[in-house]
Design a protein around this nucleic acid. Sequence first.
DNA 1: GAGTTGAGTGCACAGACGTTCACTCAACTT
DNA 2: AAGTTGAGTGAACGTCTGTGCACTCAACTC
Lengths: 213, 213
Amino acid sequence: MAGRTLGQVTEASLTRTEQKERTRRAILDASLALSAESTLAALSLRAVAKEVGVVPTAFYRHFGSVDEVGLALVDESFASLRALLRELRTGAPGYADLIDSSIQVLVEHVTTHRELFRFLVRERVAGPPRVRAAIGHEIALTTRELATDLARLPGTEGFATDDLRLLADLIVSFVGTTAERLVSEPEAAKRIAAGARVQLRMLMVGAVNWRSR
Amino acid sequence: MAGRTLGQVTEASLTRTEQKERTRRAILDASLALSAESTLAALSLRAVAKEVGVVPTAFYRHFGSVDEVGLALVDESFASLRALLRELRTGAPGYADLIDSSIQVLVEHVTTHRELFRFLVRERVAGPPRVRAAIGHEIALTTRELATDLARLPGTEGFATDDLRLLADLIVSFVGTTAERLVSEPEAAKRIAAGARVQLRMLMVGAVNWRSR
DNA sequence: GAGTTGAGTGCACAGACGTTCACTCAACTT
DNA sequence: AAGTTGAGTGAACGTCTGTGCACTCAACTC
């Protein structure tokens, strides 16, 4: 009630933790947006602060360095990615159109979280060591999960566990490449999706004919 | 003959153009080495100059900006890559062990040009726009070349040109992913190569069974 | 041998950078 | 009502950045 002095620029009279969380979010969003101009490594703390509308030193109340912002963004990205996988797993295990629906879900997710995916694709290979490691670790986990999923699918009976891991790895890599493409030319999403459907089919044909040749 | 005063630090009495080329090389090498610490975008002209052992302004005698160094490095990288492809094409077109020899040639090239490949892998997604575009263009060219190569291979008779392009694309992506891995953990080259051989085989099994299903 | 050229120098600049520190003052606790 | 807490402030620091400009002096041309 004593509020309304608009001492803080963002709205009036918020609880302390609400306001803190709001600034934290603003830092994450600003970092995501600004790093798209080049790289997280080339992103300056001061530029983030300016974008957020806060003095540079205020940054330290939320993160110890730009790298830490990167790690937080990785967590957010993979929360979104796990949601994608859950959606795919629970989605009706229809016959062969699992491929089509998988690609469709992928396209949708990349489209709605374009900035996060762009961030992941970029920082996976170009990020600061800790960020790179975090992304690599999450991808490794996802690959393992996919391998156990694949084991439950018909057509993989004759697979040794090693080969199952390699197949999962191949699929994850392919999905990564496709996401990469969707991110870099969003206007071509239709064409990319069409190509990806064919390619994933080629790949799966190889998989089911693998042990049986 | 009037030389030997060692006016320039690097050796004595070189022709003007020799000396210039030598400095240019040093700039390229230093940029490649230093950019590995993070990114080309985060590389400073002054750091390069210091590494080369030259005053910052001397840089401008050779390149207009760090981006231009990047473009020159892209040219060099793809010169090396085309050499790889030529080696593969002329290499005895043995039956199925074309896969094994391809992977072997890939491993060798990535190993001997690790820094260049690391640069390509990184800047392809994280580089300055012009550098990214240059790399993307070269990869597109390579994919087209591979598609025409594939057309000459037995087993691709029933392929529509579209599908041939998609297959080539799939293979190029796979090779890229493999190169990426070789670059990031060189000590695991043996394991990576073994996995890649199996994966490429899976992929090709899918290809030959593609139209015939 | 005299004159031109151009790679590399050295200084100077204005601006951006990360980090420090003592501070304010509104939201909280008691 | 009085006291504590902590997100955000603002000035200051030393260092690094890209770039401009006038320069040297060895390799070149004629």
